[in-house]
Amino acid sequence: MNPLLGIDRVAWEGLHHAYGTARDVPGHLRSLLSADAEARSAARQALATSVYHQGTRWEASQAVVPWLVALVDDAATPERGSVLALLDAVAIGDRRDDQLPFDAAAAFAREATAEEARWFAGLDDWSDEDIEAGDRAAARWAADSYRRTAEHLDAVVRWVGDPDDDVAARAAALLAWFPPTAAATRALLDVPASRPDVRRSADLALAHSPDTDPAVDARLRELLPGFTAAVALAYRCGEALPDAALAVLADAADAALPAAVPGWERAPRGFVMLALQRLGLG
């Protein structure tokens, strides 16, 4: 089945993105299914600069979410990990892991009403007086994109078990930005150590999770000497960190680590250093 079936029923021409009307969005979304890699790359770039413009979301951003979800959910979609990265950008913006656990109520406290945001979107020219209104509108559009993504968390949870490691790792990282559910925590715990990229991403998601289920820490202990398991235990346990995890962190500070963990911007060594700082050892 075509994952974009019904896309033309959305009134795109009545929505705005960073460059005006969003009537071009369906074409870009369709190009994500192209057999031409350059066409797909151009479409991702066009979407990234229009519905996620330097971290700012717009009216059309939330409308893109279900279609990006449908594309990632279809195993036939090319470069699904890159599509999921775009979904992550629309959902979360340019927030960094130091804002985890994420407090959505505080983050979006200054959001405009739908009517105020709609008024701002229709402005052709902005005055200095409009800057605050613009900030409030941007908060509204960011909130709308986040909440729209939250409606599809069952799919994100499912993707943690996806056979594509890039998709699975990015899905695990995305879950860190939403309140934990039993299903989400179970999906993160169940990632096998035989999938190291996915396991590391799941560990980092659990590091930032407010879920206090003892099964989480027990599973992380089982995953030692994995360095991200040690990081997660340091984040979660503080001074009660098991000696075995502390030894892993001490060794990891000077060891060769992977260049990156898919879905996370901070370098792995940065997480190790932060874990040691939390213990007063950084």
Rank of each mutant, 00 (worst) to 15 (best):
N2L: 10
N2S: 13
P3I: 03
I7T: 14
R9W: 10
V10R: 15
W12A: 13
G14T: 12
G14N: 12
A18L: 15
R23W: 14
D24A: 15
S34I: 04
A35Y: 01
A42H: 11
A43H: 14
Q54Y: 13
Q54A: 15
R57C: 06
A60W: 13
A76S: 01
T77Q: 03
E79D: 14
G81N: 10
S82K: 07
A91P: 06
D97H: 09
Q99N: 09
F102N: 05
A104T: 00
A107R: 00
A112T: 04
A112G: 06
W119G: 13
D124Q: 02
S127T: 11
A137G: 10
A137T: 13
R147G: 03
E151W: 00
H152T: 07
P163E: 06
D165M: 05
A172Y: 01
L175V: 02
A176R: 03
T181M: 09
T181C: 08
T185Y: 12
L188C: 02
L188V: 01
L188R: 02
D190G: 00
S194E: 13
D197A: 08
R199S: 08
D213R: 13
V216W: 15
D217T: 08
R219F: 00
L220Q: 04
L220I: 08
R221L: 12
R221I: 02
T228M: 09
L233M: 11
L233H: 10
A244E: 10
L246W: 09
A252S: 13
A252D: 14
W264T: 05
E265N: 03
R266W: 00
G270V: 06
M273C: 00
L276E: 00
